[in-house]
Measured scan of single mutants.
Amino acid sequence: MLDDRARMEAAKKEKVEQILAEFQLQEEDLKKVMRRMQKEMDRGLRLETHEEASVKMLPTYVRSTPEGSEVGDFLSLDLGGTNFRVMLVKVGEGEEGQWSVKTKHQMYSIPEDAMTGTAEMLFDYISECISDFLDKHQMKHKKLPLGFTFSFPVRHEDIDKGILLNWTKGFKASGAEGNNVVGLLRDAIKRRGDFEMDVVAMVNDTVATMISCYYEDHQCEVGMIVGTGCNACYMEEMQNVELVEGDEGRMCVNTEWGAFGDSGELDEFLLEYDRLVDESSANPGQQLYEKLIGGKYMGELVRLVLLRLVDENLLFHGEASEQLRTRGAFETRFVSQVESDTGDRKQIYNILSTLGLRPSTTDCDIVRRACESVSTRAAHMCSAGLAGVINRMRESRSEDVMRITVGVDGSVYKLHPSFKERFHASVRRLTPSCEITFIESEEGSGRGAALVSAVACKKACMLGQ
């Protein structure tokens, strides 16, 4: 009897593995994704193909990295998701002549009506938060230079001027797309009239992360975010950046690689679950690469896999709870928690219980395998993109072996128990001629924006502006 049951459990697990095998990517698959990513990057950089390229390769006008001589107080704003952060950054000489960066910050959550109302409502709310922060720190009387981390696709015309191309991540505030974001912020500050600010720089969160990590390690020339969304930036040779005049030196390019796949480059790798996630998203047909990796989508992918296993009578005796059938019910943090389970399955059992399920031991094991399959594919897909960037940098610099540091931020990278190990191992397999160091950014977005502002202020002083 026991043997029969054991055989049935083994057969069930084997069927589960057959279904989950769809998520496995072979090294040849990853090399294919990497080569296609490089081709799209090239198209994004070139003037004649930029418009139709899915990977936009947006110039950021960040050319210099901090040298350690900029000092002063800077205000930093960070808008990239449902939370908005205001930070005071003091850049100065530390002990023994070292450079020191001290920060104080406060988080504000953005109400739904500000995210989806008008641009005026959104930026009025942001300036209200700045006003509140300055009151708390008794700094209303000071006109501070301000660095703005704005983590949406922007076409820069200068370091302090950028046109919002399109909202992502659930934002829909009308009247912002096609307009200068810094102008919208300046107008809102003017409307309030109770404080003055000098907006000197606007950067993407990947750029802010790279600059913040450069402060720790001067070989950091790539910034990457794996959180709600997924994106990367890197220092490109100016001669390859056709959208900006000049051939000397390097400029940081914001790849906006989340949109890779929007022209069909990933079609052969998309599964039924991916198509369902895409169809029910706020932007169907867009940001397809990001939807395979980002935390906004990972939990939902797992939920759809679990429903398939229920329908195949391989999980929960073929019956799903009402909660499990509800879109968004299986949160991405559950994926991390399930994979963090120590082996007694308590954590998995508790999560499934909150979803109205009474799982068996085998159910718990199957749910864990589903989570591992989805998150491992995410790590491997992400590795193909980064390997594409790094191999490109090595080739354009004609280096036999390139040493490089990548600064990384984002909740999936930082909080998932195995993502970074799987990701690092896969990147290294795909970049055999590179020695890569990964560092995690601390308060990256805010500190990085302030350091970019410090560079901009120093330049302005040198130019006598």
Rank of each mutant, 00 (worst) to 15 (best):
R5G: 12
A11F: 11
V16I: 12
L20K: 04
Q26W: 14
D29G: 07
Q38V: 10
D42R: 12
G44K: 01
L47I: 09
E51F: 07
S54M: 10
K56L: 06
M57N: 04
L58Q: 02
L58C: 02
P66C: 12
E67A: 11
E67G: 09
D73C: 15
F74V: 05
S76L: 03
S76A: 10
D78L: 05
T82Y: 00
N83H: 02
F84T: 04
V91P: 05
G92K: 09
G92A: 11
S100I: 03
T103A: 09
E112D: 11
E112S: 11
A119N: 01
A119M: 12
D135H: 09
D135P: 04
K136R: 10
K136I: 10
Q138G: 07
Q138P: 03
M139F: 05
K143G: 05
L144T: 02
L146H: 03
F148M: 13
T149H: 02
F150Y: 05
S151F: 00
V154W: 00
H156S: 03
H156T: 01
E157P: 05
K161W: 03
K169C: 01
S174T: 10
S174D: 08
N179M: 10
V182T: 07
L184G: 04
G193N: 10
N204T: 02
D205Q: 00
T209H: 09
C213H: 05
Q219L: 13
E221V: 14
G223E: 03
G229C: 05
N231A: 02
Y234M: 15
M235S: 09
E242D: 08
E242A: 06
L243K: 00
G246S: 10
E248R: 07
V253T: 04
N254H: 00
W257G: 00
G258T: 04
G264H: 00
E265D: 10
L266D: 02
L270R: 13
Y273Q: 06
Q286K: 15
L301A: 14
L304H: 13
L306R: 05
F316G: 13
G318W: 07
G318F: 05
E319C: 12
A320S: 09
L324R: 03
L324M: 13
V335W: 03
S336D: 04
D341L: 08
G343N: 06
G343Q: 09
R345L: 13
R345M: 10
N350K: 11
I351R: 07
L355C: 07
S360N: 10
T362D: 13
R369P: 03
V374R: 00
H380Q: 09
A384S: 08
G385T: 01
G388R: 02
N391F: 10
R392V: 08
R392A: 09
R394K: 14
S398K: 15
V401M: 15
I404Y: 09
G410D: 00
Y413H: 05
F419K: 05
E421W: 12
V427S: 15
V427Q: 02
R428N: 11
L430N: 08
P432A: 10
C434K: 08
E435V: 10
E440N: 11
S441C: 14
A454N: 01
C457R: 12
K458A: 09
